Simulated scan of single mutants.
Amino acid sequence: MNSETLRTRPRHADTAHAARPATAADAEGIVRLRSAFVLAEPLAEEWIVRSGAELAARLTPGGDARAWVVDAPDGTLASCALALIHPVLPEPASPSGRAARVHAVATHPSWRRRGYAASALTALLDRLRAERVSPVEADVSGSSVALFRASGFCGSLAPMRMTWPEPPVRGRVDEKTGHVWLPLEQYAETVMKATGFACLLFTDTHDRPVQLHGVYSATHPWQLVGGTMDPGERPWETAVRECREETGIELSGPPRLLATVYGLPGTEWPYSTMGLVFDGGRLDGGQIRDIVLDPREHDEVRVLPLPEWRPLMPPRDFARLGAVLEARRTGVAAYFDTWDWGTE
């Protein structure tokens, strides 16, 4: 890039080499310096002109842009430091309700190693401090880390950022029916999201349900053995793993399904819940006493006749337990679709 492309205004002899406040006349030159020496990909000329006009308006009194520049001896801009101010909620770190982000500190290669960038940045920060604008953040590249560190900046060099995605791809239209077939990824975003679980019903030899007392859920204090499916697991694999982790019992199968359970999302959980309850079998007294609990999840094993579980459980949990126990008794799998979240 030749010097003409960065020319913005005639040089003033009394201010050469010293940082001065930028004016609207400097806007396009600042944008060109930022485009050429800050951005990963330079802007097209159309965007330089458009951005320059926008910055010129924001550099006028009352605008939200602050910039300091250093003039080169040949009348071009040698260096610049640009910040944009934005409103924030007032708090101890930003009592004025205004913060700023430094969007560009750049020096033309012909005028580097003369302290111009440090001069422009220092003057910019002094102005922001005088206006009580705080905090001040910055987009920092590897080559300017030392400069920003010396000026008092600290923290991550790579803030997170997002831009709005491109408009969605239009679906394919079936010429015969007029039906719109969305791309697979787009259609997947429209379908219901759900989590899966797998549980086991254990009873003692008198068919009294065996349940574990959870230490992490006041809403569901007494629970069947089981839990949420891990990615890549099938339901029976989840039941076997959870049983081993929660009780120390090793199951071998084959699986015998007792019930399917469904719950709508609610205040406790943002997704629908779909699960399977398998028959864990009957445990004798010794097997129950040998259960080894994971204290991070459960602190008690209890065996009670079904009616005695009612006052210890939410109504929907008790109804599910009754449906599962009835399926065990009759041999007919239960369908229980009202185990909703946060409805009691």
Rank of each mutant, 00 (worst) to 15 (best):
S3E: 14
E4L: 12
P10E: 09
P10M: 10
R20E: 12
D26L: 14
E28D: 04
G29K: 02
V31N: 07
R34D: 12
R34Y: 08
A36F: 06
A36K: 04
V38N: 09
V38D: 14
L39H: 02
L43T: 06
E45C: 09
I48H: 08
G52M: 13
A53S: 14
A53R: 14
R58M: 15
T76E: 06
S79I: 07
C80R: 07
A81W: 05
A83E: 06
P90E: 07
E91Y: 03
S94N: 13
A100I: 11
A100L: 09
H103V: 10
A106S: 13
R113E: 13
A118P: 03
A118N: 10
S119M: 10
A120P: 05
L128D: 04
R132D: 11
D139N: 07
S143L: 11
F148K: 02
R149E: 01
A150I: 04
L157N: 04
A158S: 14
P159R: 08
M160T: 15
T163Q: 09
P167G: 15
P167M: 12
P168A: 15
G171P: 01
G178I: 09
V180L: 11
P183E: 00
L184F: 06
A188K: 08
T195P: 00
C199E: 12
D207L: 02
L212Q: 06
G214L: 10
T219A: 15
T219K: 11
P221N: 07
V225N: 03
P235S: 01
P235W: 01
E237G: 09
T238A: 04
V240S: 04
R244P: 03
T247H: 01
R256T: 15
V261N: 01
T267L: 06
W269R: 13
Y271I: 02
S272I: 09
G275E: 01
V277H: 02
Q287H: 07
V292F: 03
V292L: 05
L293I: 14
D299G: 07
P315S: 11
G322V: 15
V324M: 00
L325D: 02
R328M: 00
R328Q: 03
F336W: 03
